[in-house]
Design a protein around this nucleic acid. Sequence first.
DNA 1: CTGAAAGCGCTTACAG
DNA 2: CTGAAAGCGCTTACAG
Lengths: 338, 338
Amino acid sequence: MTKPGIKDIARLSGVSPATVSRVLRNPGLVSEDTRTRVMAAIDKAGYKPNRFGASLRTQKSGNIMVVIPDITNQVNAGIIRAIESEAQKAGYCILLGDTQGKPEREQHYADMVNSGQADGILLFTANLPFSLDHSRPLLGQLPPLVNANEANEYDEIYKVVIDNRAGAQAAMEHLLELGHTRIAAVLGPLETPTSRERLAGYRQALEHANIEIDEELIIPGDYGTESGRLAMEKLLKLRHRPTAVFCFSDDMAIGAVSVLHQYGFAIPGDMSVMGFDDIRYATLLSPALTTVHQPLEEIGKASMQLLLQQLKGEEPEQRYIVQPFSLVIRQSTGPVPR
Amino acid sequence: MTKPGIKDIARLSGVSPATVSRVLRNPGLVSEDTRTRVMAAIDKAGYKPNRFGASLRTQKSGNIMVVIPDITNQVNAGIIRAIESEAQKAGYCILLGDTQGKPEREQHYADMVNSGQADGILLFTANLPFSLDHSRPLLGQLPPLVNANEANEYDEIYKVVIDNRAGAQAAMEHLLELGHTRIAAVLGPLETPTSRERLAGYRQALEHANIEIDEELIIPGDYGTESGRLAMEKLLKLRHRPTAVFCFSDDMAIGAVSVLHQYGFAIPGDMSVMGFDDIRYATLLSPALTTVHQPLEEIGKASMQLLLQQLKGEEPEQRYIVQPFSLVIRQSTGPVPR
DNA sequence: CTGAAAGCGCTTACAG
DNA sequence: CTGAAAGCGCTTACAG
């Protein structure tokens, strides 16, 4: 028999299709005797319920859309891994949407939720690709949705984040304690609240230390390795160079380090380098990278749980889940050279 | 109106649901006049066809299952990115299945194709998670399927690969030309044909050069950074150390390099290190890693195209697509120390 | 070029 | 505990 259907199983086990369905969805409603008989037929025939029929009836796809700017990014990939694992446990599948940073693709993936292909959406972007009527409460207009590791401007939206400002402050305090006063910052995209928060932490730490902020030391970046390289090239051309640089991502730190090595500078002898993220490679660099650790697995898990609660129709008690960061001091930072 | 259906659009534009469907699926069959009227209604109402209804009728999900052992791996992630992009262009969505190396999860994801949730499957693993009757031709028993970047034992199965043996040989020849004769190999998992091919290339190159193979220099590994570290620890303990090491992945090379740095060895002064993959970070290491470049984007594209052809019911003319590798010589390899 | 009708494979409220 | 029936939202062969 090719591809048995629910009717085939019903016939094989001498019950109605309704009962077969119950055995699968709601076994408690069926007598044990019937249940074993039906299960035997299902196993024997290798029956897999066709999801379309069920989905059409229940209007649930069993899918979750994950929208991400770049899957090759280690931070994103680490979070997705945890998300996927949690989703699988809960019986959901992950639909992957790599936007490559393009808003129209974001839109396209958001539409899949509208067309019922996914029951909820996990967003790694700051942008909210849904048309909103701002005069009405936001939550009623949106599908089950969680922002993972990237905040957005709407307070009402469920999100899982770390305290980026405090993370940046902790990083800066470490550098300040080492005696650095000329500390450069290599930023992430300033459209993202995450990056703005880190910048706020940077400024705040310097202000607390009564160090005047030199805007020349604040270099734009996009979290990518190449922008770290470019930023370091710029910093090295300055007449009055910094003695430490705080990169808002490990990738940028890796780029910065490669430029320093290229020109023969010692790290941290000539310049200290601080990253952010603690990706898998951070500890393997030479020197091993001092950085701010983000708990990717926990962020992924918590995001999924927040979404799962919404999917069940529950109202999660908190809109924000803040995961703890930690400062990981390795070998790329050291005392000010003199 | 909440969530307009095809009937709503039909009523709004004064046609039958059948015609609305035609406008969307097969506009050529509809008069221009009707088409514009219907399109206007669709736009106005913000109608998105519900995929379940269509899927149930057509028995096509519009999804492609991608089964991958580890999404955080840079090689996999790079290929997926291209796959996702191609899939999107062709109107397909990607269902992501990270198996975390567990066969039961592989099985689970393969089942989604059986239950109709995906129309085809892209496999990054050597294993074939389908029950097969080996007395019958293989292809009739399988859904549309492509092996991406990892071969398996079945010749009949569509796959996109590079010539791993030749890649390994090219790597070895480079080291041999530099005068190395004691060259260690750090292997990938030997269940995978990919890794076995690379090992064959390693052996072949040494044989061609009339160098006796020292089995002590062949260290098992799993492509991960940690196994690269472990392998290098072992090699350094040898009484008669190698002067070069060929790691079957960049990740292992990165691990090996970190151990060499840790103990103060110069690269390539004391030991040359060769990788395989050319991940994004290879060029940023210090020293920049000499490695075998795999064209990830092309592999992803070709895999998707091979799958798309099957999905259209075409028979692709070739079962194998072999993508070109290239040897990228950077700074981590140099002449034998003396 | 268009419409009426059948049916894809399930689930579930209803009745018994 | 179980069955008959309705119906989820589409698509498409058929008829005109």
